[in-house]
Simulated assay, not measured.
Amino acid sequence: MTIVELPAEARALLPEPEPHRLLGTGATPDPTLWPELYRLLVRGRRLNEQATALTRQGRLAVYPSSTGQEACQIAAALALEPRDWLFPSYRDTLAVITRGVPAPAALGLLRGEWHTGYDPREHRVAPLCTPLATQLPHATGLAHAARLRGDDVVALALVGDGGTSEGDFHEALNFAAVWRAPVVFLVQNNQYAISVPLAVQTAAPSLAHKAIGYGMPGRLVDGNDAPAVLQVLREAVARARSGGGPTLVEAVTYRLDAHTNADDATRYRPPEEVAAWRERDPLTLLARDLRAHGLLTDEAERAARADAETHAAGLRAALTADAAPDPADLFAHVYATPTPHLREQRDAR
């Protein structure tokens, strides 16, 4: 049997043999960026807790918590320039909020408000996408259109490991690579597609290995290491912006909470597995390194928690107020020019 060795240009597309890490490796911290990442992680964790509580109170119809995945969410938003576009999935509210969308507006879709709660153009954030992976072709199309127009724009699309089993994932990657579209795909591999473990979804060594089949580089990063995720995403965004084409990034992380408030994760996840991943909590990992380098004091930690509580209180106040929907909104934005049938329905109210 003859073993054919991959050419150098193909080997360059393969991901790292182990997830890229900065925390705990002796890497020199950025004295400004790393404390800011910690502050945003603390805020994100508190917002997850508050949104979960509001769901239990009936103020949200459902909430897919990203507790344990905050490093991926925060890094995805910070990796982009204001002119770029973010394409989130349904679990990516923290990325949307970090991008600048007010928290109550970001949760509008999960509250059942009209038109997903915010204007996508204002912050260049696409609507939170509930169908799995359908936002990926949208991101590819926007990035390709921007490139054709000569706009200096990059699209970053988030998806979970379950979404990589959808046809939209493969179609988006194929088109993006063929067109060399300036788009970055971030797979948050949190180990489960609801109750389906990753091993049942794919036989690939990693999800990042799928990139080589489309002719784009794959990157593998520790999704609980916020500085490492941000570094890898910034490199991928810079590559896309300079004409290098798309990149597939797999962030290895874990969903500490249940899939949603309607899920009982104890039915399919052993408690010892969850406990092991709690030891890899992104807040704990970053705080440990910051303290080791003298960049996190007790006072700074208290300030971060106070900031988080202020944002949680604002979200709580906004969502405990009763909404006042206008029935006329049912007829708005259906067509650019309302049809006779729609006008008849509107006028008959």
Score class of each variant (00 low, 15 high):
Gly167Tyr: 02
His170Asp: 03
Gly167Met: 04
Ala181His: 00
Pro182Asn: 09
Asp168Glu: 15
Pro182Ser: 07
Thr164Tyr: 08
Trp179Ile: 06
Ala157Lys: 03
Val178Thr: 11
Glu171Asp: 11
Ala177Pro: 15
Asn174Val: 08
Ala177Gly: 09
Glu171Met: 02
Trp179Phe: 14
Gly163Gln: 11
Val178Tyr: 02
Trp179Leu: 15
Ala181Asn: 04
Asn174Ala: 07
Leu173Arg: 06
Leu158Arg: 12
Ala181Glu: 05
Leu158His: 12
Phe185Tyr: 11
Glu171Cys: 03
Ala157Ser: 04
Val183Thr: 05
Gly162Ile: 12
Val183Gly: 00
Ala177Thr: 15
Asn174Ser: 14
Gly160Val: 01
Ala172Arg: 10
Ser165Phe: 08
Val183Ser: 12
Ala177Gln: 11
Asn174Lys: 14
Phe169Ile: 09
Asn174Thr: 14
Ala172Asn: 05
Asp161Met: 12
Ser165Thr: 13
Ala172Lys: 05
Gly162Tyr: 08
Asp161Val: 10
Ala177Trp: 01
Trp179Met: 15
Phe175Ile: 02
Val178Trp: 01
Ser165Asn: 15
Val183Asn: 01
Ala157Gly: 09
Leu173Asn: 07
Val178Ser: 02
Ala176Pro: 02
Gly167Val: 10
Thr164His: 09
Phe175Ala: 03
Gly160Trp: 04
Ala157Phe: 00
Arg180Thr: 04
Phe169Lys: 08
Asn174Tyr: 10
Ala172Gln: 03
Leu156His: 07
Arg180Asn: 14
Glu171Arg: 04
Asp168Ala: 11
Val184Thr: 01
Gly167Leu: 03
Ala157Tyr: 04
Phe175Trp: 15
Gly167Thr: 04
Val159His: 00
Ala176Asn: 00
Pro182Ile: 05
Trp179Glu: 15
Ser165Pro: 07
Arg180Cys: 12
Val159Glu: 00
Pro182Arg: 06
Phe185His: 01
Gly162Trp: 06
Asp161His: 08
Glu171Ser: 10
Phe185Asp: 00
Pro182Phe: 06
Val183Leu: 00
Phe185Thr: 00
Ala172Ile: 01
Ser165Ala: 14
Ala157Cys: 07
Leu156Thr: 09
His170Leu: 05
Leu158Phe: 11
Phe185Ser: 02
Ala177Asn: 12
Thr164Gly: 04
Val178Gln: 08
Pro182Tyr: 02
His170Gln: 05
Phe185Val: 03
Val159Pro: 04
Ala172Tyr: 06
Val184Ala: 03
Pro182Val: 09
Gly160Ser: 14
Arg180Glu: 15
Thr164Asp: 12
Asp168Val: 12
His170Arg: 01
Leu158Asn: 13
Glu171Gly: 01
Gly162Arg: 13
Ala172Val: 10
Glu166Cys: 13
Arg180His: 10
Glu171Lys: 03
Gly162Gln: 14
Thr164Arg: 00
Asp161Ala: 13
Val184His: 03
Trp179Thr: 08
Val184Lys: 00
Thr164Pro: 10
Val178Ala: 10
Val183Lys: 03
Val183Gln: 07
Leu173Met: 15
His170Ser: 09
Gly160Cys: 13
Ala157Arg: 01
Arg180Ser: 13
Gly162Cys: 04
